[in-house]
């Protein structure tokens, strides 16, 4: 099958993914942000604008610390799509481990919705007016207050 690894390689990849996920969760949950300050997103550092992914790392850290509203404040789209991303990740990992085929079960129409959401989110969180401040992962966002 095109672009499909041999099952053994896929299984190793799935084990690696689980291990990496566990390490990431432990680091994000345990490491105090003061000890390991999360660096600025490179896109933001270079352009001064926020990318659709700006704030995901801080959002993950807040979520693991139990601060749900802060997590939403850092990246609302990421928090909205997190269940879908988790579902995809679990589905792929399970299928890869057991050597099965995996399908994302996303209809083409929903794919277009996702594309529009990502691009729209990119635009909207960079609008300079007041109500959109709540979408930016910085001080001034009321959710991060």
């Amino acid at each position: 099958m095109e672009s499909r690894l041999v099952p053994a390689a896929e299984r190793r990849l799935s084990i690696l993914a689980v291990a990496g996920g566990v390490v990431a969760v432990v680091l994000l949950a345990v490491a105090p942000p003061a000890a390991y300050p999360i660096p600025d997103c490179p896109f933001h550092a270079v352009t001064g604008a926020y990318c659709p992914g700006c704030g995901t790392l801080r959002a993950s850290h807040s979520l693991l610390g139990g601060h749900f509203l802060h997590a939403v404040g850092y990246n609302a789209l990421f928090m909205l799509l997190l269940p879908l991303l988790a579902w995809w990740g679990l589905g792929w990992t399970r299928a890869a481990f057991f050597g099965r085929n995996w399908k994302s079960v996303v209809t083409p129409r929903f794919g277009w919705v996702l594309l529009a959401a990502v691009v729209g989110w990119w635009l909207v969180r960079n609008l300079p007016w007041a109500p959109f401040a709540a979408l930016r992962p910085v001080a001034g966002n009321p959710l991060l207050g």
């Binding site: 659709p52 992914g53 995901t56 990246n75 789209l77 990421f78 799509l81 991303l85 995809w88 990740g89 792929w92 994302s104 996303v106 794919g111 996702l114 990502v118």
Partner: peptide, 10 residues
């Protein structure tokens, strides 16, 4: 699609 979305957001 899933990988592309994840790559863009992460």
């Amino acid at each position: 699609l899933p990988w592309s979305i994840a790559a863009t957001l992460l």
